[in-house]
Design a protein around this nucleic acid. Structure first.
Lengths: 346, 346
DNA sequence: TCTTGATGCTAACACGTGTTAGCAAGCGAT
DNA sequence: ATCGCTTGCTAACACGTGTTAGCATCAAGA
C-alpha cells in the first residue's frame, strides 16, 4: 500500500528526451509553439506510457482556476420533495458542466446552521462558481456579497435578489392546474399550499391560483385556502380543515405532491372517493405519484432541465466575466392522470 | 467584477510584522514552535482583518493531500429507488467526512458508459479516496486496481471483491419480512424480487426468503417466485403472473417498494383488497410508501447510516494506511404499517 | 561574408503553501 | 570570558504546473 509518487511532467520530459516546457506545450496543445510532429509524437507516447496525469492542485495554483463548482444544498431533510429531485438536478447540472471540465463539490448546509463555516470552506477551495439550491430568505445578504466576487446561480427563487436564478414558472403552472379544474366544471376549487406564503414559490403558486379563478369569473374565497408545509402530515391537517367547511370544495389544487399524499389519506378516511367526490391536482410530479390510487394528476417539474440551465448560466457568467441579468423561468406541463377526473383509462 | 487577488500568507505576514513562516506556524498551530502569545495574537488579528484563507490548491500541492473524496454514482436514472436515497446517503457521508475536513466531489457515471474518462478525472484530481455507490459487475477489475493506490469503499455489494463495502444485511432483512408473514398465519407466501438474481442484493433477498420458509417448515414453491426489475411496471407484470396461478399466494413479499407500487396497482385492478385478500410487505421504506393506500409494511433501509458508515471506513483506511478487511452489514428493521394485515389503527 | 528570420527548443520565474535547518540574541553556569 | 542552552524567529527549499523571454541552429537573401 505504499502510495507511490505519480509521474510528473518532468518524468515525461526525461523519457521523451525533451524539456518539461515542451511537454507542457504539447499536452496543452499550444498552437503558436511550432513543435514538429515527430517530437509531438514522442511526448505523447511517453505521457501515455507513464500514464501521466497533470496534478489538478498544481494547475489550480498556477492557473488561478480550480475548475470546481460548489453545489450548496440548503433544504431541510424533511423537505422530502426537494430531496426527490436532487439526483436529477445533479445529473443535469454536471451534464452542463462537463463540457467545460468543471466538477461539482458538494456542500450540505442545513438551514438551521449559519453559513459562515461553509463560506470559509468555499473561500479556501477557491471555487470557480457556485449553485445554491433552495436559497432561504436569510441568505440574501451573504449571497449578494459573495456574488460580487464569484459567479453564483440560484436554483429556486430569492426575493429582492439581483442574482441570476433558475426556477419553474410557478405562477403559470399553478394557473394551468387550476384552469384545468375549472374546465372540468368545478366552481368551488380549494387550494392547499405547499408551504407558508412567506416562501416565494408558495406565494407565486397562490397568485397563479387566484389568477385562474379570476379569469374564470369565480370569486376568491379565503376559507377555501389552507396552508401546507412540505410534509404529508401538514397536507392531512389542511384537508381536514377544508372538509370541515359547511360547503366544502369539489376540487382541490394541492401545490405539492407530497403534501397531497397526506391530503389524499384524509379524503379516504372520510369515505370520499377521488375524483368522483373530490378532484385533486398536485404539483411536482414526484417520481412515485404515478403509482398512487388514483394516480395523481400533477404539474411536472423538469428537474434535470433546471440543473442543466443553472449550469449553463454559470458557464456563461464565468466565460463572459459578468453575470447574466436574466432569470430563467422554465415552463411546466400538466400530467393528466386520474385524480382530477379527466383521466383516460381508469 | 474585476476579481481581485485574495490575500496570501505573505500579506498577513507583512501586516503582522513577521515572516511568512511564522504565519504558517501560528495558523497551523504547530506546537513545538514556541511562539509567544503576543506574536500569536498579532498574527491572528492580521489574518482576521484580511479575511485570510489558505489556498486549497497550494496546500494540496505541498501536502500531497487534496482533502477531497470522490463520490461516484453508478446507478441508472431509472433505478428510481436508488435515487430516492441518494440525498440521505450524501448527508450521512458528508457528516462523517466533515470531522476530517474532507469534501465530496461528485462523479455521475452512467452504467452504460465506460469508466475510463472518469478514472482519468479521478487521477487528475488526486482524490484522497472514493466511495462508489451502486458498483456493477463490470467494475470489478478497475476497482481492484484502483484500490491498490487509493482507498475505496463500496456502497452496495460487489461479488468476489476484496474491497471494503457497506451494505444492508439483505438476507436477514428478507428473512425477517418473510417470517413476519409466516407469523401472521400465511402458508402460501409469494416473492417478487427487486431485480434479476444476477444482482447480489436480489440474490441475497431471495436466499433470506427461502431461509424463512424453511425455518417454518414451508415448502419452497418455484411458481410463487416472480422477478421484478427495479420499476413499478416490472412489479405489475410479476404480480399479474402470480395472480394467474390456479392457487395464488395469500401474501407476497416484494423485495422493493417501488416494484411493490406496480404490484399494488395490479392487485387493485383485479378487485382484490390489501391486506384482506392479499397481504404485502415491501423493501426499502421509500419516503412515500407510508402514504400509499394501504400504507406499506416494509423493511427500512437506513440510508443515512449507510453513508455515514462508508465515510467512517474510508477515514479509517486513510488514517491507518491499509484497508479495513471487513465488510459492514447494517441491520434493518421492519416498519409495520397496514399492507401486511398486522397494522394498528387501520 | 554578413544579416535576417524562421525553427525548435529550454531556462527561469511565478503561483501559495508547509517544513526543515539554522541564525541571532539573551542568559545562566562554568 | 567562554560555553551551552533556550527562546523567537526566518531563509530557503520543495511541491508540479503554465508561461514568457530568449538562445542556438540553420537556411535564405543581400
Amino acid at each position: 500500500m505504499m502510495r507511490r509518487r505519480s509521474p510528473t511532467a518532468e518524468d515525461v520530459a526525461r523519457l521523451a528526451g525533451v524539456s518539461r516546457t515542451t511537454v507542457s506545450l504539447v499536452l496543452n496543445g499550444v498552437s503558436d509553439a511550432r513543435i514538429p510532429p515527430e517530437t509531438r509524437q514522442r511526448v505523447l507516447e511517453a505521457a501515455a506510457r507513464l500514464n501521466y496525469r497533470p496534478h489538478a492542485g498544481a494547475r489550480h495554483l498556477v492557473r488561478g482556476r480550480s475548475e470546481v463548482i460548489a453545489f450548496v444544498m440548503r433544504q431541510t431533510p424533511d423537505q422530502v420533495f426537494a430531496d426527490a429531485f436532487l439526483p436529477e438536478v445533479l445529473r443535469g447540472l454536471s451534464d452542463a458542466l462537463r463540457e467545460a471540465n468543471l466538477h461539482l463539490l458538494l456542500f450540505p448546509l442545513a438551514p438551521d446552521r449559519a453559513p459562515e463555516e461553509t463560506i470559509r470552506l468555499l473561500q479556501e477551495r477557491r471555487v470557480d462558481g457556485m449553485v445554491l439550491s433552495g436559497p432561504r430568505f436569510e441568505d440574501r445578504e451573504w449571497l449578494e456579497r459573495w456574488g460580487q466576487e464569484t459567479p453564483v446561480v440560484l436554483l429556486g427563487h430569492l426575493a429582492n435578489s439581483s442574482l441570476p436564478s433558475v426556477d419553474v414558472d410557478n405562477g403559470q403552472a399553478a394557473a394551468m392546474a387550476t384552469r384545468h379544474l375549472v374546465r372540468l366544471g368545478h366552481r368551488r376549487i380549494g387550494l392547499i399550499t405547499n408551504a407558508p406564503l412567506s416562501y416565494t414559490a408558495s406565494y407565486e403558486r397562490w397568485l397563479g391560483y387566484r389568477q385562474a379563478l379570476e379569469e374564470a369569473g369565480l370569486p376568491y374565497d379565503e376559507t377555501l385556502v389552507a396552508f401546507g408545509a412540505f410534509t404529508p402530515a401538514s397536507g392531512a391537517a389542511a384537508m381536514e380543515q377544508l372538509l370541515k367547511l359547511p360547503d366544502p370544495p369539489t376540487a382541490v389544487f394541492v401545490a405539492s405532491d407530497v403534501v397531497a399524499f397526506g391530503a389524499l389519506q384524509v379524503i379516504r378516511r372520510h369515505g370520499l372517493r377521488v375524483p368522483q367526490d373530490l378532484a385533486l391536482v398536485g404539483f411536482d410530479d414526484v417520481p412515485l405519484s404515478a403509482y398512487l390510487d388514483p394516480p395523481l394528476t400533477t404539474v411536472h417539474l423538469p428537474a434535470e432541465d433546471l440543473g442543466r440551465e443553472a449550469g449553463r448560466m454559470l458557464l456563461q457568467w464565468i466565460r463572459e466575466g459578468r453575470p447574466p441579468t436574466s432569470t430563467i423561468r422554465l415552463a411546466t406541463g400538466l400530467v393528466i392522470r386520474q385524480s382530477c377526473g379527466a383521466g383516460g383509462g381508469a
